[in-house]
């Protein structure tokens, strides 16, 4: 009943242009992330997936266009406004980005201690509940250096959830994990999204996991969305770019060779110096 006032998309990316130096990373990027869904953002390495996340969280500012969170422009112009937005977004870094001088419990408690004045008793309850939901309640005293990669990511997830965010963003959550840990993370992302009723954005280049997990897949390449749709739609897309990526072919519209001068030219110019 309340939801009719909110825009249907939690994040809207409108005509975003962003360059690093002279190279345009995004040029006219448009994306809508629907509320309540798990969306996957896919693309070859170096296309700017992490850059996209940094634009959403306001760590980077688009050269042109706008990023909207809950209908409001994300803008680092006011630190207060930006921090207000960030408090509603949980981010899970690739390696968890746990604070190495705090133990697991204190890592998860960190946002609560920084932002609230809750009594210790309550903090303990919230933290243990979050740790329990990622299956690591018993590891509360461990230091981050004593955790495996998958465990560190689960602690990172518990920490990202502790402030009850509306949106949670995962950057490459499956990279470098063993198959069991991948399965655990996969289930946790889905469960978290559905049980807590939040929205999730998963950045990944793992096709199989994205197809299992996501309600909606965006494929970005060369600064634009080249295809989007449900996993089933994506499988049936005919475009060669989509086929190359979804089926993992070495050469295609995304060339095997890093762009540059021809082989012969390079041999000549390099022998001259």
């Amino acid at each position: 009943m309340l939801s009719h006032k909110k825009p249907p998309n939690i994040i809207e990316i409108q005509d975003v242009r962003y360059s690093r130096g002279k190279r345009a990373i995004f040029d006219g990027l448009n994306m809508n992330f629907p509320r309540g869904a798990v969306s996957a953002v896919m693309g070859p390495s170096g296309t700017g997936k992490t850059t996209l996340l940094n634009l959403i969280t306001g760590q980077l500012v688009p050269d042109d266009g706008a990023v909207l969170f809950d209908g409001k422009v994300v803008c680092p112009c006011s630190r207060h406004g930006l921090y207000n937005t960030r408090r509603q977004i949980g981010v899970l870094f690739q390696d968890g980005a746990l604070l190495t001088d705090l133990n697991v419990f204190e890592n998860v408690a960190f946002p609560l201690r920084e932002h609230t004045r809750l009594p210790e008793q309550l903090i303990r309850q919230i933290v243990l509940m979050r740790l329990n939901s990622v299956g690591l309640r018993a590891a509360w005293q461990r230091m981050p250096s004593e955790l495996s990669g998958g465990m560190a990511r689960r602690v990172g997830l518990a920490r990202a959830l502790v402030m009850d965010p509306k949106l949670i963003i995962y950057d490459e959550p499956f990279t470098g994990l063993d198959p069991i840990a991948v399965g655990v993370i996969l289930r946790l992302i889905r469960q978290t999204n559905d049980v807590l009723g939040i929205t999730s954005i998963v950045v990944t280049h793992d096709v199989a996991e994205a197809e299992m997990l996501a309600d909606l897949i965006f494929l970005i390449s060369e600064g634009k969305v080249v295809a989007s749709g449900s996993p089933l739609d994506m499988q049936q897309k005919a475009s060669s770019m989509v086929r190359q990526f979804m089926q993992g072919l070495a050469d295609g519209p995304v060339p095997f060779h890093y762009p540059g001068t021809s082989y012969a030219d390079q041999l000549q110019t390099m022998s001259r110096t």
Partner: peptide, 22 residues
């Protein structure tokens, strides 16, 4: 420097905690 390199400072920023202060 290591906190910078391992994204801990960025993680703080994203938790709306100012690393300069903390």
């Amino acid at each position: 420097g290591l906190m910078r390199a391992t994204n801990q400072l960025a993680a703080m920023e994203l938790m709306a905690v100012d690393p300069l202060q903390r």
